[in-house]
Design a protein around this nucleic acid. Sequence first.
RNA 1: GGAGGGGUUGGGGAGCGGUCAAACCCAUCAGACUGUAAAUCUGACGCCUCAGGCUUCACAGGUUCGAAUCCUGUCCCCUCCA
Length: 416
Amino acid sequence: MTGLKSEFLQILTERDFIHQATDLAALDAKMSEGPISAYIGFDCTARSLHVGSLVQIMMLRWLQKSGHQPIVLMGGGTSKIGDPSGRDESRQLMTNEIIADNMAGIRTVFDRLLTLGDGKTDAVMVNNGEWLDALEYIPFLREVGTHFTINRMLTFDSVKLRLDREQPLTFLEFNYMILQAYDFMELGKRYGCALQMGGSDQWGNIVNGIELARRASSQHLFGLTTPLITTADGKKMGKTASGAIWLNEDHLPAYDFWQFWRNTQDADVGKFLRLFTEIPMNEVRRLEALEGAEINDAKIILANAVTALIRGEEAARLAEATAKETFEQGGAGADLPTVTVPGAALEAGINVVDLFVEAGLGASKGEVRRLIKQGGAKLNDEKVTDTESTVTSSALAGGQIKLSAGKKRHALVRPE
RNA sequence: GGAGGGGUUGGGGAGCGGUCAAACCCAUCAGACUGUAAAUCUGACGCCUCAGGCUUCACAGGUUCGAAUCCUGUCCCCUCCA
Protein backbone atom coordinates (compact mmCIF):
# COMPACT_ATOMS: atom_id res chain seq x y z
CA MET A 1 0.00 0.00 0.00
CA THR A 2 3.02 2.28 -0.29
CA GLY A 3 4.00 4.43 -3.17
CA LEU A 4 0.73 6.26 -3.51
CA LYS A 5 1.14 9.69 -4.95
CA SER A 6 -2.16 11.40 -4.41
CA GLU A 7 -2.64 13.15 -1.11
CA PHE A 8 -6.19 11.88 -0.74
CA LEU A 9 -5.32 8.22 -1.13
CA GLN A 10 -2.32 8.60 1.14
CA ILE A 11 -4.50 9.96 3.88
CA LEU A 12 -7.12 7.29 3.38
CA THR A 13 -4.55 4.55 3.50
CA GLU A 14 -2.82 5.92 6.52
CA ARG A 15 -6.08 6.28 8.41
CA ASP A 16 -7.42 2.85 7.44
CA PHE A 17 -10.37 3.94 5.36
CA ILE A 18 -9.79 1.61 2.46
CA HIS A 19 -11.21 -1.85 2.28
CA GLN A 20 -11.32 -2.54 -1.43
CA ALA A 21 -10.68 -0.48 -4.51
CA THR A 22 -10.82 -1.03 -8.23
CA ASP A 23 -7.52 -0.35 -9.92
CA LEU A 24 -6.00 1.70 -7.15
CA ALA A 25 -2.87 2.49 -9.14
CA ALA A 26 -4.80 4.06 -12.01
CA LEU A 27 -6.98 5.97 -9.60
CA ASP A 28 -3.91 7.25 -7.82
CA ALA A 29 -2.42 8.43 -11.06
CA LYS A 30 -5.60 10.22 -12.01
CA MET A 31 -6.00 11.86 -8.63
CA SER A 32 -2.46 13.11 -8.51
CA GLU A 33 -2.81 14.71 -11.93
CA GLY A 34 -5.67 16.98 -10.97
CA PRO A 35 -8.95 17.36 -9.16
CA ILE A 36 -11.63 14.78 -9.70
CA SER A 37 -15.22 14.47 -8.57
CA ALA A 38 -16.28 11.61 -6.37
CA TYR A 39 -19.59 10.67 -4.87
CA ILE A 40 -21.14 8.79 -2.03
CA GLY A 41 -24.81 7.99 -1.89
CA PHE A 42 -26.91 8.44 1.21
CA ASP A 43 -30.29 6.99 1.92
CA CYS A 44 -32.85 9.43 3.09
CA THR A 45 -34.87 7.13 5.23
CA ALA A 46 -34.62 9.33 8.32
CA ARG A 47 -34.32 13.00 9.12
CA SER A 48 -30.79 12.55 10.35
CA LEU A 49 -27.86 10.35 9.52
CA HIS A 50 -26.19 8.46 12.35
CA VAL A 51 -22.63 7.46 13.14
CA GLY A 52 -22.94 4.58 10.73
CA SER A 53 -22.56 7.11 7.93
CA LEU A 54 -19.81 9.08 9.58
CA VAL A 55 -16.96 7.20 7.92
CA GLN A 56 -18.37 8.09 4.53
CA ILE A 57 -18.87 11.69 5.53
CA MET A 58 -15.30 11.97 6.76
CA MET A 59 -14.10 10.59 3.47
CA LEU A 60 -15.89 13.32 1.59
CA ARG A 61 -14.32 15.85 3.90
CA TRP A 62 -10.85 14.56 3.25
CA LEU A 63 -11.62 14.53 -0.42
CA GLN A 64 -12.45 18.18 -0.39
CA LYS A 65 -9.51 19.03 1.84
CA SER A 66 -7.16 17.46 -0.60
CA GLY A 67 -8.50 19.48 -3.46
CA HIS A 68 -11.15 17.35 -5.05
CA GLN A 69 -14.85 17.77 -5.45
CA PRO A 70 -17.28 15.81 -3.29
CA ILE A 71 -20.72 14.97 -4.57
CA VAL A 72 -23.30 14.08 -2.00
CA LEU A 73 -25.91 11.99 -3.67
CA MET A 74 -29.21 11.93 -1.89
CA GLY A 75 -31.21 8.88 -2.68
CA GLY A 76 -34.47 10.70 -3.21
CA GLY A 77 -35.34 8.37 -6.04
CA THR A 78 -33.88 5.18 -4.67
CA SER A 79 -35.37 5.72 -1.23
CA LYS A 80 -38.64 4.99 -2.91
CA ILE A 81 -37.38 1.50 -3.46
CA GLY A 82 -35.15 0.59 -0.56
CA ASP A 83 -31.75 -1.04 -0.70
CA PRO A 84 -32.09 -4.73 0.04
CA SER A 85 -28.47 -4.95 1.21
CA GLY A 86 -28.19 -6.04 4.80
CA ARG A 87 -31.90 -6.23 5.16
CA ASP A 88 -33.86 -9.31 5.84
CA GLU A 89 -37.12 -7.65 5.29
CA SER A 90 -38.44 -5.18 2.82
CA ARG A 91 -38.45 -1.58 3.84
CA GLN A 92 -41.54 0.46 3.97
CA LEU A 93 -42.17 2.57 0.96
CA MET A 94 -41.79 6.27 1.54
CA THR A 95 -43.76 9.20 0.25
CA ASN A 96 -42.33 12.24 -1.50
CA GLU A 97 -43.09 14.53 1.41
CA ILE A 98 -41.26 12.36 3.89
CA ILE A 99 -38.28 12.05 1.59
CA ALA A 100 -38.07 15.81 1.04
CA ASP A 101 -38.29 16.41 4.75
CA ASN A 102 -35.60 13.86 5.47
CA MET A 103 -33.30 15.35 2.89
CA ALA A 104 -33.60 18.77 4.47
CA GLY A 105 -32.67 17.32 7.85
CA ILE A 106 -29.69 15.43 6.51
CA ARG A 107 -28.44 18.47 4.68
CA THR A 108 -27.61 20.25 7.93
CA VAL A 109 -24.71 17.88 8.59
CA PHE A 110 -23.18 18.51 5.22
CA ASP A 111 -23.63 22.24 5.57
CA ARG A 112 -21.35 22.04 8.55
CA LEU A 113 -18.80 19.56 7.26
CA LEU A 114 -18.41 20.44 3.62
CA THR A 115 -18.18 23.64 1.67
CA LEU A 116 -21.12 23.54 -0.64
CA GLY A 117 -21.25 25.92 -3.57
CA ASP A 118 -20.36 26.53 -7.18
CA GLY A 119 -16.57 26.67 -6.98
CA LYS A 120 -14.32 24.10 -8.50
CA THR A 121 -13.89 22.03 -5.38
CA ASP A 122 -17.11 23.10 -3.74
CA ALA A 123 -19.27 20.17 -2.83
CA VAL A 124 -22.60 19.68 -4.51
CA MET A 125 -25.65 17.90 -3.31
CA VAL A 126 -27.58 16.03 -5.90
CA ASN A 127 -30.84 14.17 -5.69
CA ASN A 128 -31.04 11.12 -7.88
CA GLY A 129 -34.76 11.70 -8.13
CA GLU A 130 -33.72 14.28 -10.72
CA TRP A 131 -33.13 11.59 -13.28
CA LEU A 132 -34.74 8.53 -11.78
CA ASP A 133 -38.20 9.99 -11.42
CA ALA A 134 -38.35 10.84 -15.09
CA LEU A 135 -37.16 7.51 -16.43
CA GLU A 136 -39.25 5.87 -19.06
CA TYR A 137 -39.53 2.18 -18.68
CA ILE A 138 -38.99 0.88 -22.19
CA PRO A 139 -36.17 3.23 -23.18
CA PHE A 140 -34.51 2.50 -19.84
CA LEU A 141 -34.73 -1.22 -20.35
CA ARG A 142 -33.24 -0.89 -23.79
CA GLU A 143 -30.41 1.36 -22.70
CA VAL A 144 -29.53 -0.20 -19.37
CA GLY A 145 -31.31 -3.50 -19.07
CA THR A 146 -29.37 -5.10 -21.86
CA HIS A 147 -26.17 -4.78 -19.89
CA PHE A 148 -27.34 -6.80 -16.93
CA THR A 149 -27.83 -10.52 -16.88
CA ILE A 150 -30.08 -12.06 -14.33
CA ASN A 151 -27.50 -14.77 -13.89
CA ARG A 152 -25.06 -12.26 -12.57
CA MET A 153 -27.53 -10.28 -10.53
CA LEU A 154 -28.48 -13.42 -8.69
CA THR A 155 -24.93 -13.87 -7.51
CA PHE A 156 -24.83 -10.60 -5.60
CA ASP A 157 -24.89 -10.89 -1.85
CA SER A 158 -27.78 -8.52 -1.40
CA VAL A 159 -29.90 -10.80 -3.54
CA LYS A 160 -28.40 -14.14 -2.67
CA LEU A 161 -28.81 -13.64 1.05
CA ARG A 162 -32.49 -13.10 0.72
CA LEU A 163 -32.97 -16.00 -1.59
CA ASP A 164 -30.87 -18.33 0.53
CA ARG A 165 -32.93 -17.53 3.56
CA GLU A 166 -35.98 -18.09 1.48
CA GLN A 167 -37.19 -14.62 2.21
CA PRO A 168 -39.09 -12.69 -0.40
CA LEU A 169 -37.31 -10.16 -2.52
CA THR A 170 -39.65 -8.08 -4.59
CA PHE A 171 -38.99 -7.13 -8.16
CA LEU A 172 -38.98 -3.54 -6.99
CA GLU A 173 -36.05 -4.16 -4.68
CA PHE A 174 -34.36 -6.34 -7.21
CA ASN A 175 -34.06 -3.25 -9.37
CA TYR A 176 -32.21 -1.27 -6.76
CA MET A 177 -28.78 -2.29 -7.90
CA ILE A 178 -29.54 -1.40 -11.47
CA LEU A 179 -30.67 2.04 -10.48
CA GLN A 180 -27.61 2.62 -8.37
CA ALA A 181 -25.44 1.58 -11.27
CA TYR A 182 -27.37 3.98 -13.43
CA ASP A 183 -26.80 6.73 -10.87
CA PHE A 184 -23.07 6.34 -11.16
CA MET A 185 -23.21 6.50 -14.93
CA GLU A 186 -25.42 9.58 -14.84
CA LEU A 187 -23.16 11.34 -12.36
CA GLY A 188 -20.27 10.54 -14.63
CA LYS A 189 -22.05 12.13 -17.55
CA ARG A 190 -23.54 15.10 -15.77
CA TYR A 191 -20.81 16.02 -13.30
CA GLY A 192 -17.77 14.23 -14.60
CA CYS A 193 -17.83 12.09 -11.50
CA ALA A 194 -15.11 9.48 -11.69
CA LEU A 195 -15.23 7.72 -8.37
CA GLN A 196 -17.85 6.21 -6.14
CA MET A 197 -17.10 5.44 -2.54
CA GLY A 198 -19.19 3.62 0.03
CA GLY A 199 -19.34 0.97 2.70
CA SER A 200 -18.10 -2.50 1.95
CA ASP A 201 -21.69 -3.66 1.50
CA GLN A 202 -21.88 -1.37 -1.52
CA TRP A 203 -19.08 -3.07 -3.40
CA GLY A 204 -21.35 -5.01 -5.69
CA ASN A 205 -23.45 -1.99 -6.51
CA ILE A 206 -20.39 0.11 -7.19
CA VAL A 207 -18.80 -2.43 -9.48
CA ASN A 208 -22.05 -2.70 -11.39
CA GLY A 209 -21.99 1.02 -11.99
CA ILE A 210 -18.45 0.92 -13.26
CA GLU A 211 -19.27 -1.83 -15.70
CA LEU A 212 -22.45 -0.24 -16.89
CA ALA A 213 -20.70 3.07 -17.52
CA ARG A 214 -17.97 1.33 -19.42
CA ARG A 215 -20.33 -0.58 -21.65
CA ALA A 216 -23.08 1.93 -22.15
CA SER A 217 -21.19 5.19 -22.21
CA SER A 218 -17.49 4.31 -22.48
CA GLN A 219 -16.54 5.96 -19.21
CA HIS A 220 -13.68 4.75 -17.06
CA LEU A 221 -14.87 4.97 -13.48
CA PHE A 222 -13.45 3.91 -10.15
CA GLY A 223 -14.76 2.44 -6.93
CA LEU A 224 -13.53 2.36 -3.37
CA THR A 225 -15.07 0.95 -0.22
CA THR A 226 -14.52 1.35 3.48
CA PRO A 227 -14.42 -1.57 5.89
CA LEU A 228 -17.41 -2.33 8.02
CA ILE A 229 -16.75 -0.51 11.25
CA THR A 230 -17.25 -2.74 14.24
CA THR A 231 -16.31 -2.25 17.84
CA ALA A 232 -13.56 -4.35 19.37
CA ASP A 233 -16.03 -6.86 20.70
CA GLY A 234 -17.40 -7.39 17.24
CA LYS A 235 -20.60 -5.42 17.39
CA LYS A 236 -21.85 -3.08 14.80
CA MET A 237 -20.88 0.37 15.87
CA GLY A 238 -23.28 3.07 16.87
CA LYS A 239 -26.03 1.29 18.68
CA THR A 240 -26.66 1.97 22.32
CA ALA A 241 -29.42 1.30 24.77
CA SER A 242 -31.28 4.44 23.84
CA GLY A 243 -30.96 3.80 20.14
CA ALA A 244 -28.84 5.06 17.29
CA ILE A 245 -26.24 7.76 17.70
CA TRP A 246 -27.70 10.48 15.54
CA LEU A 247 -25.66 13.25 14.06
CA ASN A 248 -28.36 15.90 14.30
CA GLU A 249 -28.80 17.79 17.53
CA ASP A 250 -32.58 17.52 17.50
CA HIS A 251 -32.27 13.74 17.42
CA LEU A 252 -29.63 13.40 20.12
CA PRO A 253 -28.41 16.10 22.50
CA ALA A 254 -24.74 17.03 22.23
CA TYR A 255 -24.08 15.86 25.77
CA ASP A 256 -25.20 12.31 24.93
CA PHE A 257 -23.31 12.45 21.67
CA TRP A 258 -20.16 13.42 23.52
CA GLN A 259 -20.72 10.67 26.10
CA PHE A 260 -20.96 8.08 23.35
CA TRP A 261 -17.41 8.85 22.26
CA ARG A 262 -16.14 9.27 25.80
CA ASN A 263 -17.31 5.71 26.53
CA THR A 264 -15.38 4.17 23.66
CA GLN A 265 -13.65 0.93 24.57
CA ASP A 266 -9.90 1.11 25.02
CA ALA A 267 -9.30 -1.10 22.05
CA ASP A 268 -11.24 1.15 19.71
CA VAL A 269 -9.67 4.48 20.59
CA GLY A 270 -7.01 4.40 17.91
CA LYS A 271 -9.35 3.27 15.20
CA PHE A 272 -11.89 5.94 16.04
CA LEU A 273 -9.31 8.69 16.21
CA ARG A 274 -8.14 7.74 12.74
CA LEU A 275 -11.56 7.50 11.17
CA PHE A 276 -13.59 10.11 12.93
CA THR A 277 -11.22 12.93 13.71
CA GLU A 278 -8.68 14.99 11.80
CA ILE A 279 -6.06 14.76 14.47
CA PRO A 280 -2.62 14.31 12.86
CA MET A 281 -1.39 10.75 12.71
CA ASN A 282 1.65 11.18 14.91
CA GLU A 283 -0.63 12.50 17.62
CA VAL A 284 -3.05 9.64 17.04
CA ARG A 285 -0.26 7.14 17.52
CA ARG A 286 0.77 8.78 20.75
CA LEU A 287 -2.77 8.81 22.08
CA GLU A 288 -3.61 5.25 21.26
CA ALA A 289 -0.44 4.08 22.94
CA LEU A 290 -1.56 5.44 26.30
CA GLU A 291 -2.19 2.75 28.84
CA GLY A 292 -4.28 2.21 31.92
CA ALA A 293 -6.27 5.15 33.16
CA GLU A 294 -4.32 7.48 30.94
CA ILE A 295 -6.18 6.37 27.89
CA ASN A 296 -9.14 8.23 29.29
CA ASP A 297 -7.41 11.40 28.19
CA ALA A 298 -7.38 10.07 24.67
CA LYS A 299 -11.09 9.32 24.91
CA ILE A 300 -11.80 12.86 25.99
CA ILE A 301 -9.79 14.19 23.09
CA LEU A 302 -11.69 11.89 20.78
CA ALA A 303 -15.04 13.00 22.17
CA ASN A 304 -14.11 16.65 21.90
CA ALA A 305 -12.83 16.34 18.38
CA VAL A 306 -15.82 14.47 17.01
CA THR A 307 -18.35 16.57 18.86
CA ALA A 308 -16.69 19.78 17.74
CA LEU A 309 -16.74 18.60 14.17
CA ILE A 310 -20.36 17.48 14.11
CA ARG A 311 -21.96 19.77 16.66
CA GLY A 312 -19.58 22.68 16.89
CA GLU A 313 -16.82 23.80 19.22
CA GLU A 314 -19.22 25.33 21.69
CA ALA A 315 -21.26 22.17 22.09
CA ALA A 316 -18.11 20.15 22.63
CA ARG A 317 -16.82 22.53 25.28
CA LEU A 318 -20.10 22.53 27.13
CA ALA A 319 -20.36 18.76 27.03
CA GLU A 320 -16.84 18.33 28.29
CA ALA A 321 -17.33 20.85 31.09
CA THR A 322 -20.53 19.16 32.12
CA ALA A 323 -18.89 15.76 32.12
CA LYS A 324 -15.99 17.04 34.13
CA GLU A 325 -18.19 18.65 36.73
CA THR A 326 -20.48 15.67 36.95
CA PHE A 327 -17.99 12.84 36.96
CA GLU A 328 -14.83 14.29 38.39
CA GLN A 329 -16.21 16.74 40.90
CA GLY A 330 -19.44 14.97 41.70
CA GLY A 331 -21.37 18.08 40.86
CA ALA A 332 -24.01 18.75 38.29
CA GLY A 333 -23.01 20.18 34.97
CA ALA A 334 -25.28 22.63 33.21
CA ASP A 335 -25.57 20.57 30.04
CA LEU A 336 -27.20 17.58 31.71
CA PRO A 337 -30.68 16.76 30.55
CA THR A 338 -33.03 18.99 32.46
CA VAL A 339 -36.68 18.59 33.31
CA THR A 340 -38.85 21.28 34.81
CA VAL A 341 -41.67 20.59 37.20
CA PRO A 342 -44.34 23.00 38.46
CA GLY A 343 -43.05 24.79 41.56
CA ALA A 344 -46.27 24.21 43.41
CA ALA A 345 -46.12 20.48 42.85
CA LEU A 346 -42.60 20.31 44.20
CA GLU A 347 -43.67 22.47 47.13
CA ALA A 348 -46.33 19.89 47.94
CA GLY A 349 -43.95 17.00 47.49
CA ILE A 350 -43.49 14.51 44.65
CA ASN A 351 -42.89 10.80 45.11
CA VAL A 352 -39.29 9.87 44.23
CA VAL A 353 -40.35 7.18 41.86
CA ASP A 354 -42.57 9.56 39.94
CA LEU A 355 -39.83 12.12 39.83
CA PHE A 356 -37.37 9.67 38.27
CA VAL A 357 -39.88 8.65 35.64
CA GLU A 358 -40.61 12.31 34.98
CA ALA A 359 -36.91 12.96 34.50
CA GLY A 360 -36.67 10.20 31.93
CA LEU A 361 -34.39 8.00 34.04
CA GLY A 362 -36.78 5.10 33.93
CA ALA A 363 -39.36 3.90 31.46
CA SER A 364 -41.85 2.85 34.11
CA LYS A 365 -42.37 3.10 37.82
CA GLY A 366 -41.55 -0.54 38.18
CA GLU A 367 -38.21 0.07 36.56
CA VAL A 368 -37.42 2.90 38.93
CA ARG A 369 -38.47 0.86 41.96
CA ARG A 370 -36.10 -1.85 40.84
CA LEU A 371 -33.37 0.70 40.37
CA ILE A 372 -33.88 1.95 43.91
CA LYS A 373 -33.96 -1.56 45.33
CA GLN A 374 -30.68 -2.37 43.64
CA GLY A 375 -29.09 0.76 44.96
CA GLY A 376 -28.65 2.49 41.64
CA ALA A 377 -30.77 5.56 42.25
CA LYS A 378 -29.32 8.72 43.73
CA LEU A 379 -30.78 12.07 44.60
CA ASN A 380 -28.23 14.84 44.98
CA ASP A 381 -25.62 12.07 45.12
CA GLU A 382 -27.26 10.34 48.05
CA LYS A 383 -28.58 6.88 47.59
CA VAL A 384 -32.36 6.65 47.51
CA THR A 385 -33.44 3.76 49.72
CA ASP A 386 -37.17 4.17 50.09
CA THR A 387 -39.50 4.00 47.12
CA GLU A 388 -42.18 5.70 49.18
CA SER A 389 -40.20 8.76 50.10
CA THR A 390 -41.25 12.15 48.90
CA VAL A 391 -39.17 14.88 47.39
CA THR A 392 -40.00 18.45 48.25
CA SER A 393 -38.50 21.81 47.51
CA SER A 394 -36.24 21.34 50.52
CA ALA A 395 -34.18 19.02 48.32
CA LEU A 396 -33.32 21.88 46.02
CA ALA A 397 -29.64 22.60 45.91
CA GLY A 398 -28.68 25.65 43.99
CA GLY A 399 -32.15 25.83 42.50
CA GLN A 400 -32.09 22.30 41.16
CA ILE A 401 -32.19 18.65 42.11
CA LYS A 402 -29.73 16.18 40.62
CA LEU A 403 -31.01 12.71 39.95
CA SER A 404 -28.77 9.81 39.00
CA ALA A 405 -29.55 6.37 37.68
CA GLY A 406 -26.44 4.32 37.89
CA LYS A 407 -23.06 5.91 37.42
CA LYS A 408 -23.58 7.43 34.05
CA ARG A 409 -27.11 8.63 33.63
CA HIS A 410 -27.92 11.91 35.28
CA ALA A 411 -30.66 14.48 35.01
CA LEU A 412 -31.55 17.78 36.61
CA VAL A 413 -34.94 18.80 37.90
CA ARG A 414 -35.83 22.45 38.21
CA PRO A 415 -39.00 24.05 39.50
CA GLU A 416 -40.71 26.55 37.27
C1' G B 1 -56.23 -23.70 -6.31
C1' G B 2 -54.53 -28.34 -3.16
C1' A B 3 -51.57 -30.48 1.19
C1' G B 4 -48.96 -29.51 5.50
C1' G B 5 -46.24 -26.30 9.37
C1' G B 6 -46.42 -21.96 12.26
C1' G B 7 -47.64 -16.99 14.87
C1' U B 8 -45.16 -16.82 22.84
C1' U B 9 -42.84 -11.17 27.00
C1' G B 10 -36.74 -6.35 22.85
C1' G B 11 -34.40 -10.64 19.56
C1' G B 12 -33.84 -16.02 19.37
C1' G B 13 -36.62 -19.91 21.40
C1' A B 14 -39.06 -23.60 25.24
C1' G B 15 -43.85 -24.62 27.07
C1' C B 16 -48.83 -27.93 24.50
C1' G B 17 -55.18 -28.04 30.28
C1' G B 18 -53.70 -26.29 36.55
C1' U B 19 -47.23 -26.21 39.93
C1' C B 20 -47.15 -19.98 33.89
C1' A B 21 -45.93 -13.40 34.24
C1' A B 22 -44.34 -18.16 31.29
C1' A B 23 -37.55 -22.32 31.02
C1' C B 24 -33.06 -21.13 28.55
C1' C B 25 -29.76 -17.98 25.46
C1' C B 26 -28.75 -13.05 23.70
C1' A B 27 -29.49 -7.95 24.28
C1' U B 28 -30.50 -4.44 28.13
C1' C B 29 -30.28 -2.25 33.20
C1' A B 30 -28.22 -2.05 38.25
C1' G B 31 -24.49 -3.62 41.97
C1' A B 32 -19.26 -5.33 42.98
C1' C B 33 -14.23 -4.79 40.89
C1' U B 34 -12.19 -0.56 37.95
C1' G B 35 -10.37 4.11 34.74
C1' U B 36 -17.43 7.15 32.86
C1' A B 37 -12.94 0.91 29.39
C1' A B 38 -12.95 -4.36 28.62
C1' A B 39 -13.31 -9.03 31.00
C1' U B 40 -15.45 -11.31 35.27
C1' C B 41 -18.92 -12.11 39.31
C1' U B 42 -23.97 -10.94 41.53
C1' G B 43 -28.90 -9.40 40.86
C1' A B 44 -32.94 -7.59 37.95
C1' C B 45 -35.59 -7.64 33.49
C1' G B 46 -44.96 -7.06 31.73
C1' C B 47 -47.81 -3.05 34.49
C1' C B 48 -49.65 -1.08 39.04
C1' U B 49 -52.18 1.63 44.42
C1' C B 50 -45.78 -3.76 44.82
C1' A B 51 -45.39 -9.11 51.08
C1' G B 52 -51.10 -7.74 47.35
C1' G B 53 -53.43 -6.76 42.66
C1' C B 54 -54.03 -6.23 37.28
C1' U B 55 -53.29 -7.22 32.01
C1' U B 56 -50.50 -10.67 28.63
C1' C B 57 -48.64 -15.84 24.78
C1' A B 58 -51.58 -12.96 16.38
C1' C B 59 -57.21 -11.43 16.65
C1' A B 60 -62.47 -12.72 17.87
C1' G B 61 -65.49 -16.20 20.00
C1' G B 62 -66.29 -21.14 22.54
C1' U B 63 -65.43 -25.67 25.83
C1' U B 64 -63.80 -26.05 31.08
C1' C B 65 -64.00 -25.00 38.09
C1' G B 66 -59.42 -23.57 35.34
C1' A B 67 -56.47 -22.29 28.60
C1' A B 68 -50.34 -19.79 26.03
C1' U B 69 -51.89 -24.92 25.93
C1' C B 70 -58.37 -27.95 23.51
C1' C B 71 -62.43 -26.34 19.66
C1' U B 72 -64.44 -22.68 15.82
C1' G B 73 -63.77 -18.52 12.74
C1' U B 74 -60.52 -14.38 10.96
C1' C B 75 -55.82 -12.25 9.70
C1' C B 76 -50.64 -12.97 8.76
C1' C B 77 -46.09 -16.03 7.73
C1' C B 78 -43.51 -20.43 5.83
C1' U B 79 -42.86 -25.24 3.09
C1' C B 80 -44.39 -28.59 -0.64
C1' C B 81 -47.65 -29.76 -4.89
C1' A B 82 -50.49 -27.38 -9.15
